[in-house]
């Protein structure tokens, strides 16, 4: 059965229309940037600097102020939106697998971007950038996007967000929103990667997906914990106290993601892998306020 069927496409098209009104809350809303000489709407004046186009000199104000002033315009830049999709082995866990929800979210966001005449690039990563979808610009290319997402599989080794961010910043020079869809299980932490994106001029957004088996593992007694990313097996006796402590630690981890995002003005959404598809769709497209969203 195809992951994105006709019903899904219809729902995407419909929801992308009705969520335009809520575009400000959408995860892929771009910020209007003032571009001197760009756009058509004059927003102000500034001192002339050598190299400015003579055509934008406001001669009326020059006559009044007896100095050279240049008009500034505010134009909506060509919106480049990037999606970084985690395909590390840890995304295969959960019921349903986290990777399925991640691809659905990527499809929703991508469709929304293409429907709003944006330019979309999708990068897939695990311990680095694994593969990518070349930039696409039109809604008619959404089928290509969906096929690309459908053809993805889990690959790579353990998650390495920092290396992925470095490779991404070297490969994509044009700034824009970068939506990181991942479980953020990186031993080095998620902060270095997001810091890299922020300081390189991108606008990172985070969609964290977790499985209920990770929030409440329900393990007790003697078990062998097998890390699907590192392949390391750890024998342990999980007591009730340890299970409770794990749940507390997991909540702290989620809270740390939200706290970091709030501190740095990064939009953050967190979903369990079994969240209903409609709720995810409405939340991602901004039509519904997420329960765990900070921005």
């Amino acid at each position: 059965m195809a992951m994105f069927d006709t019903e899904t496409l219809k729902r995407l098209r419909y929801l992308s229309l009705i969520t335009r009104r809520a575009a400000e809350r959408s995860l892929v809303t771009t910020v209007r940037r003032k571009l001197p000489g760009g756009g058509t709407e004059a927003t102000g004046l500034r001192d002339y600097t050598p190299g400015d186009d003579y055509r934008y000199i406001d001669w009326h104000w020059c006559a009044r102020r007896d100095e050279l002033l240049t008009k500034t315009f505010e134009g909506e830049a060509d919106r480049h939106v990037y999606i970084l999709l985690d395909c590390s082995p840890s995304m295969g866990l959960g019921q349903p697998p986290k990777f399925d929800l991640a691809r659905q979210i990527a499809a929703m966001l991508g469709y929304a971007v293409l429907a709003n005449l944006g330019c979309l690039s999708v990068g897939v990563f695990s311990d680095g950038l694994v593969t990518q979808q070349p930039p696409i610009r039109h809604r008619s290319h959404s089928v290509r996007l969906l096929r690309f997402l459908e053809g993805l599989s889990l690959q790579g080794d353990r998650t390495n967000l920092a290396r992925t961010a470095e490779q991404f910043a070297r490969r994509y020079q044009r700034h824009g929103p970068v939506v990181v869809i991942s479980d953020l299980y990186d031993r080095e932490g998620f902060r270095p990667a997001l810091d890299t994106l922020r300081h390189r001029g991108y606008e990172p957004r985070v969609v964290q997906i977790y499985g209920l088996c990770e929030a409440c593992p329900g393990l007790l007694g003697d078990v062998e914990l097998y890390d699907v990313e590192s392949g390391f097996a750890r024998r342990a006796t999980v007591t009730e106290r340890a299970a409770r402590r794990y749940e507390e630690r997991f909540v702290e981890f989620q809270e740390s993601v939200r706290r970091y995002s709030a501190t740095h003005g990064i939009r953050c959404l967190q979903f369990a892998s079994d969240t209903p598809e409609n709720d995810v769709l409405l939340t991602v497209l901004g039509a519904k306020s997420p329960l765990k969203t900070s921005s």
Binding site: R187, G211, L225, D227, F232, R234, R245, Y246, R249
Partner: peptide, 20 residues
């Protein structure tokens, strides 16, 4: 004979078990 339970990451378990 221990059953093997796959986990997405053992970094949280590592911290928890270290506290025991």
């Amino acid at each position: 004979r221990l059953r093997s339970d796959p986990v997405a990451t053992d970094m949280i378990w590592q911290c928890v078990l270290a506290e025991q």
